[in-house]
Nucleic acid binder design. Structure first.
Length: 469
RNA sequence: GCCCCCAUCGUCUAGCGGCCCAGGACGCUGCCCUUUCAAGGCGGUAACGGGGAUUCGAAUUCCCCUGGGGGCACCA
């Protein structure tokens, strides 16, 4: 497939939904796999307002994910008059007609149809008006919308690259509007014409658009398409209740994932494996590997649940794979400004295997920047720990005299000498120093804090031990 | 209501008539490692929605049912 041309067509909005990103990703993988062209085309036929800022946001987000485009962004609003000319052409060829029904009339007739058990949709009211009838309706002050005339009978069939043959009887597809009575073209028309004129060869999109493909194909044919472009419909992404992925399931805008500290490579990898899998068992795959392995025939047919837990796992995997220096560079800007490179490096090396999303680094290392409070939880923990006063005294003595290196601080022997196991008393010591029963390695943390602050924290804990104080 | 699509562990999926009393991954869980927690290593748990049919043989083919999703706009 030498001349593959695909496009990703987001609606102009303030953010990029993960579902859209998923579609974009598959289009991109397909284009790159076949050495084709990937076009960014923003769907907006409204010329009355500028959405420059939103378009810019879409570009930024796509670039962040690593989806580069070869052409565009093409804005539909710049092609407004072209769409209207096409509509006129369709009227002239008999593929479309002017409809004088008002919105209220349509609504009333739709409701009546539903009540009578018939399907909603245009009833063909203005289908075959004579020129005189049209003139009379126009004289009433009505303005016409333009409707596409769908076939009266027969079956519409097309081969979906993922699902195979899909067909439906034309009687189920009503005539649809392509130009509003206000004179503005609808997305449907714009989309079909753009795909045609941009020589799009493959249209890869969400399954929610499956039914409308029959209409697009009919429109394309009426517009004079020499052949059909090939369609492929991807499984939808769903949330916890198997419905559309929405905000109440968690983050849905790609920008949110970015802001929460997800790595684009991890998101990319995870998204690529939602609804698709390679021939082998690989899961952690680079962009290049994904491009090389990608194949539409490997796409699943059923909706995929967007699993935040698995995404977290991917993100952790990617953090661990990162060279420590690169990881450190990501961590540094998040921390309170410090001029101690040793501290930053200590935080980086100790958090790299512990972090799921980057923003957790701040929480994990907070005790290094401000002393933890003596909380009821910590007090309870101290009270529950066996021989805690003894342990604290011994550790304090050790810290007072030891070599001030991480190895010198290591006080397991002190615990063992008391006949205790580290596991029995460590949570209390972590709480005393870090403010929580588990956290960054204690000896490194103490070293970073310095002898005086460490002793201060340990003595505070000692003073908080109830009973034999 | 009508039309369309879909159906394997809780989740993402492998499977395209015998290699499957179903494989991998996440999750959960046990053990090991270990200064805590992670990470890592080694195990465990758990699925072919139901019913017919075809076949020597069905997760895999066909039909029905059930279930889920999507669509039916002068939205994109």
């Amino acid at each position: 497939m030498a001349d593959v041309r695909v496009r990703f067509s987001p609606a102009p909005s303030g953010s990029l939904h993960v579902g859209s990103a998923h579609t974009a990703l598959f289009n991109w993988l397909f284009a790159r796999h076949h050495g084709g062209t990937f076009i960014l085309r923003v769907e907006d036929t409204d010329v009355t307002r500028s959405r420059a800022k939103w378009v810019e946001g879409i570009q930024t987000t796509m670039a962040w994910l690593g989806l580069d485009w070869d052409e565009g962004p093409v804005l539909q609003s710049t092609r407004f008059s072209r769409y209207l000319a096409a509509a006129d052409q369709l009227i002239a060829s008999g593929h479309a007609y002017e409809c004088y029904c008002t919105e209220e009339e349509l609504k009333a007739r739709n409701e009546a149809a539903m009540a009578a058990g018939r399907p909603p949709g245009y009833d063909g009211h203005c289908r075959d008006l004579s020129p005189d009838e049209r003139a009379a309706l126009a004289a009433e002050g009505r303005t016409a919308s333009i409707r596409f005339r769908t076939p009266d009978d027969g079956v519409s069939t097309f081969d979906d690259l993922i699902r195979g043959e899909v067909s439906v009887e034309w009687t189920h597809i009503a005539d649809f509007v392509i130009v509003r009575s206000g004179g503005t073209p609808l997305f449907f028309l714009a989309n079909a014409l753009d795909d045609l004129e941009m020589a799009i060869t493959h249209v890869i999109r969400g399954e929610d658009l499956l039914d409308s493909t029959h209409r697009v194909l009919a429109l394309r044919a009426a517009l004079g398409a020499p052949d059909r472009s090939v369609y492929a419909h991807l499984p939808l992404l769903v949330g916890a209740d198997r419905g559309k992925l929405s905000k109440r399931h968690g983050a849905v805008a790609l920008e949110d994932f970015r802001d929460r500290g997800y790595l684009p490579e991890a998101l990319f990898n995870y998204l690529a494996l939602l609804g698709w899998s390679p021939d082998d068992d690989r899961e952690i795959m680079s962009r290049d590997e994904l491009v090389a392995a990608f194949d539409l025939s490997g796409v699943t047919h059923s909706a995929a649940f967007f699993d935040y837990q698995k995404l977290d796992w991917f993100n952790g995997q990617y953090f661990r794979k990162l060279p420590t220096k690169e990881y450190e560079a990501l961590v540094k800007p998040l921390l309170p400004s410090v001029d101690d490179p040793g501290l930053v490096s200590m935080i980086a090396t100790t958090t790299q295997s512990r972090v799921v999303t980057l923003d957790q680094v701040v929480e994990m290392s907070d005790f290094l920047f401000s002393d933890p409070e003596m909380t009821p939880e910590t007090q309870e923990l101290l009270a529950e720990t066996p021989r805690v006063a003894e342990v604290l005294d011994a550790v304090i003595t050790h810290i007072e005299q030891c070599d001030w290196t991480v190895d010198g601080i290591a006080f397991q022997p002190v615990i063992k000498e008391l006949g205790l196991k580290p596991k029995q008393v460590m949570p209390a010591l972590y709480a005393a120093v870090e403010g929580r029963p588990a956290g960054l390695p204690l000896f490194d943390s103490m070293h970073a804090l310095g002898r005086e602050r460490t002793l201060d924290l340990l003595r505070k804990a000692r003073a908080a031990v109830p009973g034999d104080g």
